[in-house]
């Protein structure tokens, strides 16, 4: 609980961060930039979990602990994503999104 800040303001911030992440995911042309956008999204959701726990249900710990799990999963997923990107780079010598379009009509 932060003195003087209502929950609405925090939600506003996290929502803006979430949608910036979505914008980046849809817009960027580089696979690693897409990865970075995913990180933003994940972080926004983690903050949401913690804030709700802290503001609305202070005697429970579910949100807090779940946020730990989210961070763990995000880390694992980023590691795997990077290894895939590196393997892909070896095959097609490029990390542009437009070179990964072969599964189409």
């Amino acid at each position: 609980m932060i003195a003087g800040i209502s929950i609405y303001e925090i939600f506003t911030v996290t929502s803006i961060l979430f949608f910036i992440g979505i914008y980046g995911f849809i817009t960027r042309k580089n696979l690693i930039s897409v990865l970075i956008s995913i990180e933003l999204i994940l972080n926004a959701s983690v903050v949401n979990f913690v804030v709700i726990n802290k503001y609305l249900y202070p005697d429970m710990l579910q949100g807090v602990i779940f946020s730990i799990f989210i961070i763990a999963v995000a880390a694992a997923e980023t590691a795997l994503a990077v290894s895939i990107i590196i393997n892909l780079y070896r095959q097609i010598s490029s990390v542009e999104v437009k070179d990964t379009e072969i599964m189409k009509y």
Partner: peptide, 8 residues
Amino acid sequence: GLQSGKFQ
């Protein structure tokens, strides 16, 4: 064209 293969 809807199935363009572009994940974005």
